[in-house]
C-alpha cells in the first residue's frame, strides 16, 4: 500500500523546493566579504577632492556604507530613507559615489538632501570591484572594528530598515570595541 504514496511524497518534496525557490531573489548573491574587514582603499571625498577617504574612516563607530550614483534610478527611491537614518543619528552614513560625474553628484545631493557624513568618489569603479559591487544600490553595515557585518543588494525599503538594518545596528552598538 505504501508504495502508492511514493509518487505523492516525491511530488510534494519537489513542489516544496520549487515554492521556496519562487520567493528567493536570484540576483542577491551572498557576499564573501561579510565577516571580513573592509577592503583597503583611498579615494577623494566628494565635497573636497583634497581630502582622502580611506577605510580608517569606519574605525570606532557603527557605519552604513551606501554605494550610489545619480544614474541609478533605484538609488533615488531609497534616498529619503538614508536621509531619515542619517538624521536619526543612530548610525553614521557614508557613501561611495560609483562611476558618476562629480558635478552631477553634488547637484543631486543639494537637491535631494545629503545623508552622507562623507562620500568617496570612485569614478572608475575600481574600488567598487574590491567591495564586490555588481548592482547599485548596495549597502554595507560595518561594525566598530571596521568589519563588514551585512550586505544589502538593491533598494532598501522601510521594511528592510525596520526588520534587518536597525536591529543589527543596535546590536553592533552594544558590542564592545
Amino acid at each position: 500500500m505504501f508504495k502508492y504514496f511514493i509518487p505523492v511524497i516525491v511530488f510534494f518534496a519537489l513542489a516544496g523546493f520549487l515554492v521556496t525557490g519562487l520567493y528567493k531573489d536570484p540576483t542577491a548573491v551572498s557576499s564573501p566579504l561579510v565577516g571580513k574587514p573592509v577592503p583597503q582603499f583611498t579615494l577623494p571625498k566628494l565635497w573636497d577632492n583634497e581630502i582622502e577617504f580611506s577605510e580608517s574612516e569606519f574605525a570606532g563607530k557603527v557605519s552604513l556604507f551606501n554605494v550610489w550614483a545619480t544614474w541609478c534610478l533605484a538609488c533615488r527611491q531609497e534616498h529619503p530613507l538614508l536621509v531619515e537614518l542619517s538624521n536619526s543619528k543612530v548610525v553614521t552614513v557614508y557613501g561611495l559615489n560609483y562611476k558618476d560625474e562629480i558635478s552631477e553628484a553634488r547637484r543631486y545631493l543639494v537637491e535631494h538632501g545629503d545623508p552622507f557624513e562623507a562620500s568617496a568618489v570612485d569614478a572608475t569603479g575600481r574600488v567598487g570591484i574590491d567591495w564586490g559591487v555588481y548592482g547599485v544600490p548596495e549597502t554595507f553595515i560595518i561594525d566598530k572594528q571596521g568589519v563588514i557585518r551585512h550586505k544589502h543588494i538593491g533598494v532598501i525599503t522601510q521594511n528592510d530598515v525596520q526588520l534587518t538594518l536597525l536591529p543589527l545596528i543596535r546590536q553592533l552598538h552594544n558590542e564592545s570595541m
Partner: peptide, 8 residues
C-alpha cells in the same frame, strides 16, 4: 574574483 564576488 572569487574573494570579492563569491564562488558564484
Amino acid at each position: 574574483m572569487a574573494s570579492r564576488y563569491g564562488d558564484f
